[in-house]
Amino acid sequence: MLTLYGMPDSGNCYKPRLLLAKLGRPFRHVQVNSVSGETRTAAYLAKNPNGKVPLLELDDGRRLAESNAILLHLSEGTRYLPTDAYQRALVFQWLFFEQYSHEPYIAVRRALLKYPARADQATPDRMAHLLDAGHGALGVMETQLRVSRFIAGDALTVADIALFAYTQDAAFAGYEIARFPGVTAWLDRVRADEGHVPLDWLP
C-alpha cells in the first residue's frame, strides 16, 4: 500500500490526499509535523534529506518528495493529466506558476497567521508584501479563468488540484477573494468534481 507522510492542515500535503481520494486509491497516512520539528529527526531525514512533507512511499519502498511531483506521478494514465504534449505542457506551466508565483505568497502568509511558532516572522512589511503579491497571483488566475473552465483548459487536471489547495484557504490569510469572481466560481467547480474531499480529510 502507498504511504503518505504529511500534516493534515498543510495545503501541500492536501494535494496528494485530494488526488488519491479522487482516484479511489487506498493509502496509509503517517502524520509528521514540520512545525514541531518532526521532519528534522534523523529517522525522517533518512527518508527525505530535504526534511519536508509531503513524502510518498511507493509499494516497493521507493520514495518521492515535492507535492507537485507526487501529483504528476499519481496522475499518470488518469483523466487528471492530459496525454497531448501541448496540453501536458500547459499543466506543467501552471504547476510551476503555483510553486513560484502563488505558493510563496498565499501559502506563506497563511502559515504565518496559522502557526503561532512563526508569528515573530510576520512583520508588517512582510505581511503587506505577501498580501500584494498574492493578490497579483490571484489576478493572473482570474484572467485565465475568464477564458477556460479550469486552469489549464476545459477539464480539471492536477494543475487545478495544486492551485486549489491554498486558494481555497486564501480568505483565512486575508486575501480579498471576492475581488476575483472567476476564481470564486472555479473554486466551486473544483469542489463539485467527483471524489472531492476537504482539507482535513484523512483515510
Rank of each mutant, 00 (worst) to 15 (best):
A122G: 11
T123R: 00
T123H: 00
T123I: 02
T123D: 01
P124L: 11
D125S: 14
D125F: 10
R126L: 15
R126D: 04
M127R: 13
M127F: 13
A128R: 13
A128L: 12
H129E: 02
H129R: 13
L131N: 09
L131P: 06
L131A: 10
D132K: 10
A133W: 04
A133E: 04
A133N: 02
G134L: 01
G134A: 07
G134N: 03
G134S: 05
G134T: 04
H135N: 13
H135W: 03
A137Y: 01
A137D: 00
A137C: 07
L138Q: 02
L138W: 01
L138V: 11
V140S: 05
M141L: 14
E142Y: 11
E142G: 12
E142V: 11
T143R: 14
Q144N: 08
L145S: 05
L145Q: 03
R146F: 00
R146S: 10
V147W: 03
V147G: 06
R149S: 08
R149T: 05
R149D: 04
F150H: 11
F150G: 03
F150A: 05
I151M: 05
A152H: 01
A152S: 10
G153A: 09
G153D: 06
D154Q: 12
D154Y: 08
A155R: 12
L156C: 11
L156P: 03
T157M: 02
V158A: 12
V158D: 00
V158E: 00
V158G: 13
A159C: 02
I161C: 08
I161Y: 03
A162Y: 00
L163I: 07
F164E: 09
A165E: 05
Y166E: 06
Y166T: 07
T167H: 01
T167K: 11
T167S: 11
Q168E: 11
D169G: 08
D169K: 10
A170C: 08
A171N: 10
A171W: 00
A171P: 01
A171C: 12
A171M: 02
F172M: 06
F172V: 14
A173V: 07
G174S: 01
G174P: 04
G174F: 14
Y175G: 08
Y175W: 09
Y175Q: 08
E176A: 15
E176R: 15
E176T: 15
I177T: 15
I177M: 15
I177N: 15
A178I: 07
A178E: 15
R179L: 14
F180S: 11
F180H: 09
F180L: 13
P181T: 14
P181Q: 08
G182E: 05
G182Q: 12
G182L: 11
V183N: 07
T184N: 08
T184H: 05
T184R: 09
